[in-house]
Design a protein around this nucleic acid. Sequence first.
DNA 1: AGATAAAATTGAACATTGTTCAAAACTGAG
DNA 2: CTCAGTTTTGAACAATGTTCAATTTTATCT
Lengths: 198, 198
Amino acid sequence: MVGKRQEKREALRRNLIGAAAARIEEGGLSAFRARDVAADVGCALGTIYTVFQDLDDLILQVNAETLQDLGRSLAPTSDVETPKTALTALAQGYARFAAKNFNRWNALFDHRMADGGPSPDWLLAHHSTLLRLLERHIAKLTPGLAGEALTLRARTWFAAVHGIVSISLQKRFLGLPDDRLMEELEVFVGQVVAGSGR
Amino acid sequence: MVGKRQEKREALRRNLIGAAAARIEEGGLSAFRARDVAADVGCALGTIYTVFQDLDDLILQVNAETLQDLGRSLAPTSDVETPKTALTALAQGYARFAAKNFNRWNALFDHRMADGGPSPDWLLAHHSTLLRLLERHIAKLTPGLAGEALTLRARTWFAAVHGIVSISLQKRFLGLPDDRLMEELEVFVGQVVAGSGR
DNA sequence: AGATAAAATTGAACATTGTTCAAAACTGAG
DNA sequence: CTCAGTTTTGAACAATGTTCAATTTTATCT
């Protein structure tokens, strides 16, 4: 039995991430307690800190999984014909994922690094993967755009859609009612697409 | 001396809000401590709770002031000629305010009600005032739009711009570099304006 | 199998922070 | 000056992230 230790450790790690994800999805990041996940997986409080650096680290793992889920959820949307239909489908797909996995999705943006700095590179790589889904279509829309300019335009595009979805779903501010979000997204994407060809 | 008590109370209240705003601007919402503001104004810890319901209540007061500051900062921008110049100026003015008052501005969106519900009506009214700055120009852009549809379109518009500014300034994710934000905003507003006339 | 050293796990203890509340200090009318 | 009402105080409490010395488990060697 060579990898017995390694194996148990890996299982524990996965259990902890799973329990953390479940707790976050159930009550949001603010209701997330170290003692709860410890109880959920049946280990001691201190054990969490033998697997993860701290709770932030654990949350980052959950966020990474959420980003992968989001990617899987958007992938089928990617091979649609025109840029307009593709970008509309991506925006609405994003909104649908956010609504269905609200608390986990929210944790992606609620969470802050302890020092206020950027997320670690390995997590940003997940973001990057998703942003690349946009570039293809935006490039088709604005042929002159390439390289870094294209990358930045994709970030702008995502941020705009995210803002609309975020403020609407969070309901803390004056956002769109749920039944209007999808249409407004369609109109919005249509406007930006129409205004992009120059 | 009739209003002596009332007067001191009012001064204490203003001091507490001021100290809280300073603390938030200095270190962000996460570095905001009840004991710090108490020390700052030279009162006991418990005194805070005789003026405000809880810390959330105090934070809401700070946020209300921030929204008013933002409104004052955007007001001069409002009487520009074309919708495109006005909306560009508003978007860039929003970005400039956010950059200059980063932590206070961030607190507007970082803060969550304890129960996860919406902000109180009196705070939403401040939001509403700001959103109304947009409606005039959007209406000129899309003549068919009025009433509730116009209100919702203004929310969509704000949310999109906010998303771009927010993701860029927070730097936690893949946003725009500081020196590119203003140009991207100009392009973005140009695109939406160009695509709106139909 | 038994012994043993290394590794993993435990959970009590600690530090921090929001909140409460009985006691002390203060205020202003009589 | 007195005293009832009001305000302020800060010690105490509860919740929660984190640490670490002690205990338990595991893998290897004889």
